[in-house]
Simulated assay, not measured.
Amino acid sequence: MHDELLEKHLSLVIEANKTTNITRISSWEDGMLLHVKDSLLGLDALNACPAGRYADIGTGAGYPGIPLAIKSGRETLLVDSVAKKVQILDGFISELGLQNASTYAGRIEDLGRERPGQFTAITARALSKISILLELASPLLQRGGRLICYKARVEQEELDHARVVAKQVGMELVDDKTFELGENCRRILSYEKVAKPKLKLPRRTGLAQKKPL
């Protein structure tokens, strides 16, 4: 049943993509590898998080959020700032009959103000630098909750900066795995919320990107 839903989601994405640009991947083979299989590489990392609510930030076409919702059964919130994408996602959720998934149309900082500490797991795939993701995720996570970052190649400089910012926002690297994905690699890093941030979060909307820590 799970696999049927994963395939149905991908076919809905490919169909929706004909009229709205929600993904640059247009073929079934690429979609199965670079969306579905890629999304599921983070399943073990998600299952290692405490029980509770999970959010996929910058979800786009619903990857990795929808496959992870299907496979994990967790209560899942798909977060995107583009209202049109969220409308499409609502359609996907309805067509797939997913009882455990819902959407949030808005900025991650606003979600952090509205639902602080309400999540035990957050994923972010190809969204931003790790340091920025750490700042955005920290206010959303409860103590012991984890941010799961899907990255391609990560320069040492990005990792070093992330280590410095992690201390500021009460997070620490607890898992780092690399997987083969076709001809490419996928690196999945998990950061756990271990302390209160040393500064008031979330900062004003947009500052994480404009004036990074």
Rank of each mutant, 00 (worst) to 15 (best):
S72C: 05
A195F: 09
M171T: 06
K211Q: 14
E135F: 10
Q142L: 11
L6N: 00
V165Y: 01
D56Y: 02
G65S: 05
N184S: 05
H9Q: 08
L77A: 09
W28L: 11
D90M: 07
L68I: 02
S72D: 04
R153P: 09
L40Q: 03
A195M: 11
R203S: 06
Y63L: 03
L40H: 03
V174K: 12
S27A: 07
G52Y: 00
E109H: 13
Q209D: 15
R163Q: 10
N17A: 10
R153A: 14
G31L: 00
V194P: 09
N184K: 06
L43I: 09
P212R: 07
R125S: 02
I122F: 09
A126N: 11
L141R: 06
L46M: 05
Y63K: 00
A83H: 10
T103K: 05
K177R: 15
E192Y: 08
G206Y: 09
A51F: 06
D30W: 03
L46E: 00
K8N: 12
L96Y: 06
S27Y: 08
T123R: 00
L41Y: 02
A55Y: 11
G31S: 01
C149R: 10
A152M: 04
L89E: 00
L201R: 04
S102E: 11
V36N: 01
L127F: 12
A195Q: 11
P116N: 08
K37T: 07
M1S: 15
R153M: 13
L68M: 02
E75I: 11
D175K: 15
K193C: 06
Y54I: 01
K84L: 03
L199H: 07
A166N: 05
V154H: 10
S94E: 12
M171D: 04
P197H: 10
R163F: 03
S94T: 08
V79Y: 10
L147F: 15
G170N: 01
K84C: 04
I188M: 03
M1L: 13
A121C: 11
R115W: 13
R146A: 13
K85P: 03
L199F: 08
E15Y: 11
G60S: 04
N47Q: 14
L43H: 04
L89K: 00
H161R: 15
S72R: 02
P212L: 10
K200Y: 08
I57W: 13
A137D: 10
A162G: 10
L98V: 07
S11T: 14
R146P: 08
D3W: 09
T19H: 13
M32D: 00
K200H: 10
F92G: 00
D90Q: 13
G97A: 13
L181D: 00
L46P: 00
